[in-house]
Each structure stands twice: as structure tokens, then as C-alpha cells.
């Protein structure tokens, strides 16, 4: 049970980091990830079927997911459509596209190579997640990172400074959805199948875990970089809390049909508490 839970945490972490990037750094709530979480494994699965090597299929699947983010960025360009609505629209279209790519609602992967073929799958997931974390934290302090943080902080000033701020949006959402795609591929690899509905609600779970993680970070540290880096680490704690709670509830015999209701209510309570503490922080 613990190993299964750990694997779930590891495969979900890239997704949580992607949501953290869009939600906390870019300050865009991107719902496209519901669709791109499935798009990547759908492309991944079909390419494996066509005989592509596993790494190539994985990279192309992740690239497809990132491209979905770019499409969302183009739809919401200059906020002509609200980012929330743009994400829902693209995610809605992706549902059909994913079904089209898969050719059927459920695609088994047991006959194809797996990430755990050489080493234990848990070790591979761990290595991938650690690698993503290092690149992510390195990216935050890079010029690209400060550009993306500047976009989240004041995108209109970027425009005033003659910068193409929409490029930031495209790059940011590309990274965010690529990370969701990685999680999607790892989840498919772990579960041995791709299901066209496997992305339903993952964005909410992702936002929930990010909110839980952010609750644990000391607010308004002097250095924004230290705060962001700490927050991205605490997002992992948030993911761990979420999946362990879910695992405990299942073990305790909670009906799976009631699970989403229970978790939804719990996340709502967490989010309300988060917004209250933010308001208190601003007033103090």
C-alpha cells in the first residue's frame, strides 16, 4: 500500500509543479491540464503501438501536451477570453481529440515497453521527478524564470517595456502542460492503460495539492526566490498529504463513489482557509 501510494505521489508531482507554475508564478488558472494530462499518454500509447522507441514516444507525447498549452495561450491572448474559459474550451476540445487519437476509450499498454523494464518503476519515477525538480528550481533562478515571474507579477509593465508578454504566456503554459503530460505518461505507465477520462478533475486535485502545500510555507519571506523554491518543495508535501489521505480513506472502507465528494469538500475548506489567511496576512 505504501509503495503504491509513493508511486502515485511521484507520478503526480510533475503535474503539481506545472499547476504551481501556472497558479503561483504566472497567476493564471489553467484548466487545460485536464486534457493535456490525457493527450500526452494518448500520443505516447499510439506511438508505442507504431513501434516508436519508448523515450521518443514519451518526448513526443509530452511535446503534444505542451502544444495544447500554447493553443490555450493563443486563445486567451491579451485576455480577450478569460484564461479560465480558454482552458475549459481547449480541454473540452481535447476530450474529442484524445478519443480520436486513442481510437477507443481505453487503450491497454501491457504489451508495450514500460519505464520500469530496466530498473524498478518506482526508481525510474523517482529519478524523473528529482530531475524535473532540479530543472524546475534551476529554471526559477534563470533569466527565463525571472521573465515568467515578471509576467505573473505585472504583465502590463512587460508590455510597457516593449516586451512581447504573450511569449511569456505561451512559454509558461507550454511548460505547465508539458509537466502535466509527463504526469499523464507516468500514470499510464503505472496503471498499464490510458483512459480518455483519466484526466477528469486532475486540475482540481492539482490546485488542491498546491494550495495545501502553499499553506505550509511561511508567507512573504524577504526573498521571493527563497519563498518560491520553498513553496515548490512544499507542493510535494501537499501532494503527499493528499494521496496519503486518499489512501487512508480507501483503507478505512470509504465508498469510492463518495471519495470525490469528501475530497472536494476538504479542498474547499482548505482553499477558504488559504484565502482567509492571505487576507489576514495583507491586513497585518
Amino acid at each position: 500500500m505504501i509503495l503504491g501510494c509513493l508511486e502515485q505521489i511521484l507520478v503526480f508531482l510533475p503535474m503539481a509543479l506545472g499547476i504551481f507554475l501556472s497558479y503561483s508564478v504566472l497567476k493564471i488558472t489553467d484548466l487545460t491540464v485536464d486534457g493535456s494530462f490525457v493527450l500526452a499518454p494518448a500520443v505516447f500509447a499510439r506511438l508505442l503501438e507504431y513501434g516508436f522507441p519508448l523515450p521518443a514516444a514519451l518526448v513526443l507525447g509530452v511535446f503534444a501536451a505542451g502544444s495544447a498549452g500554447v493553443i490555450t495561450a493563443l486563445v486567451q491572448k491579451e485576455e480577450r477570453i478569460s484564461p479560465l474559459l480558454a482552458g475549459i474550451l481547449v480541454s473540452y476540445c481535447l476530450f474529442s481529440l484524445n478519443l480520436l487519437i486513442l481510437g477507443k476509450p481505453n487503450f491497454g499498454l501491457s504489451d508495450y515497453p514500460h519505464l520500469g523494464d530496466v530498473l524498478a518503476s518506482g526508481v525510474v519515477y523517482f529519478a524523473i521527478t528529482i530531475f524535473i525538480y532540479i530543472v524546475f528550481l534551476g529554471g526559477l533562478i534563470s533569466p527565463l524564470g525571472s521573465y515568467l515571474r515578471a509576467f505573473g507579477s505585472n504583465r502590463y509593465l512587460l508590455r510597457d517595456m516593449s516586451q512581447k508578454e504573450e511569449r511569456c504566456r505561451r512559454v509558461g503554459l507550454f511548460i505547465c502542460n508539458s509537466l502535466a503530460g509527463i504526469s499523464g505518461c507516468l500514470t499510464a505507465d503505472l496503471n498499464d492503460y490510458v483512459d480518455c477520462r483519466m484526466g477528469q478533475g486532475v486540475v482540481l486535485v492539482g490546485i488542491g495539492t498546491v494550495v495545501i502545500g502553499l499553506q505550509l510555507v511561511p508567507r512573504y519571506l524577504a526573498s521571493p526566490l527563497v519563498e518560491l523554491s520553498l513553496a515548490s518543495v512544499f507542493v510535494a508535501v501537499g501532494v503527499a498529504i493528499y494521496f496519503m489521505l486518499m489512501s487512508c480513506l480507501m483503507q478505512a472502507g470509504l465508498d469510492p463513489f463518495h471519495l470525490k465528494l469528501f475530497l472536494g469538500v476538504s479542498l474547499t475548506i482548505f482553499m477558504v482557509a488559504s484565502s482567509r489567511s492571505q487576507m489576514a496576512g495583507r491586513m497585518s
Binding site: P143, S146, R149, A150, G152, S153, M161, P224
Partner: peptide, 21 residues
């Protein structure tokens, strides 16, 4: 607040302004 990046440090603000200019 409309003319600075509030979430960035003074140094980061100036570095970005220098790079863009």
C-alpha cells in the same frame, strides 16, 4: 505599483529593466 514588479526584488527589477533596455 503599476510600474514595478511587486513580487520581484529591487535588484531583479533593475536587472530586468537593464536587460530590456
Amino acid at each position: 505599483s503599476r510600474y514595478v514588479f511587486l513580487d520581484l526584488t529591487v535588484q531583479e527589477n533593475m536587472q530586468l529593466a537593464a536587460r530590456f533596455a
